[in-house]
């Protein structure tokens, strides 16, 4: 697949602080790429370098195989950190200005306003907008030049649950249209739902990169409840059991490879036990994220 973005040894230092440390990364066409990391891990600094507002200390990157230039940025729609617009201009006027900067036809404005459902408020000044409307206008602006790549940095920051749901729906809609999306977010649940690939940054270092599908792989954990006293001991005799943890009155059985919840169920039944609760635990990105961060000291 075609490389949309490739980053080589990209480094940014602020005085003694290495905000981004020799980052190597590739994003291919059509991926929805999640960038994860705690606050201050270098996500926004990285995106700032990719969009030409932060000067890299060392290293290089290329968009669509070309060296970075201001013209290449016109093919990318980006919102970094929070929406930025002229407060005294209306949403419509702000987008007209953006269209001039991006050198794209103004006919697109009506379409993107429609996508983010701001058509009714387009003639009101930007400073009268709610935070959710500002975020949506930012997404409209990013979509204005029909970009092949979309960069969204914490697009749901500070939104209420309704606003978050709106934005999530919007991102899914855009992803379905085949655009490459780079999404920096704290909301791991969101990344798991939307992204195809993800990378984890920690204090400027890349500590993990891979497909989101891999998150579910690994040992299966089955949560078992039954109204007998020695459930624990009986489960220990099951050949597929690797370890057992007790949590809230139920047994969390980590299985050896090749064994699944159905085997546990059959084993219990053969031993004359009827489970009142039997559930396979899906490993969440959240859990994996915390594992990755704690492993990489």
């Amino acid at each position: 697949m075609e490389n949309v973005l490739s980053i080589r040894a990209l480094t940014k230092t602020f005085g003694k602080l290495r905000a981004v440390n020799s980052l190597n990364l590739e994003v291919k066409a059509g991926q929805v790429f999640g960038m994860l990391g705690p606050n201050g891990s270098g996500k926004t600094t990285t995106l700032g370098m990719l969009m030409g507002v932060v000067n890299p200390t060392e290293g290089a990157f290329s968009w669509f195989g070309e060296p970075p230039s201001h013209d290449v940025r016109k093919k990318i729609g980006a919102v970094l950190e929070h929406p930025i617009f002229y407060p005294y201009l209306s949403g419509q006027k702000n987008l007209e200005l953006n269209a001039m900067v991006k050198q794209c036809p103004t006919e697109n404005i009506a379409r993107v306003l429609d996508i983010v459902e701001l058509t009714e408020r387009r003639n009101d000044r930007y400073k009268t907008y709610s935070l959710g409307m500002k975020q949506r206008l930012a997404i409209a602006s990013a979509l204005l030049n029909d970009p092949t790549v979309l960069i969204l940095d914490e697009p749901t920051n500070g939104l209420d649950p309704m606003g978050i749901a709106d934005i999530r729906r919007l991102i899914k809609k855009i992803a379905e249209s085949g655009k490459t999306i780079i999404l920096a977010s704290h909301l791991l649940d969101e990344v798991q739902k939307v992204c195809t690939h993800f990378a984890v940054l920690k204090r400027g270092n890349l500590v993990h990169v891979g497909p989101v599908d891999d998150v579910g792989n690994g040992a299966e954990v089955v949560e078992v409840k039954a109204s007998i006293a020695n459930l624990n001991e009986i489960l220990m005799t099951f050949p597929g059991t690797s370890t057992i943890n007790h949590e809230n009155g139920s047994c969390h059985v980590t299985l050896r490879t090749g064994f699944h919840s159905v085997d546990v169920n059959r084993f219990l039944f053969e031993n004359g036990i009827v489970a009142s609760h039997l559930q396979t635990q899906k490993r969440s990105l959240e859990k994996m994220f915390i594992e990755i961060l704690s492993e990489s000291h």
Binding site: M51, H70, R73, K74, A78, L80, F85, Y86, P87, V101
Partner: peptide, 17 residues
Amino acid sequence: TYRTARQNIIDGLSRQQ
């Protein structure tokens, strides 16, 4: 103060422009 210089550059103006 509005940080619009930053957004102008993100949107595709060069710093010189």
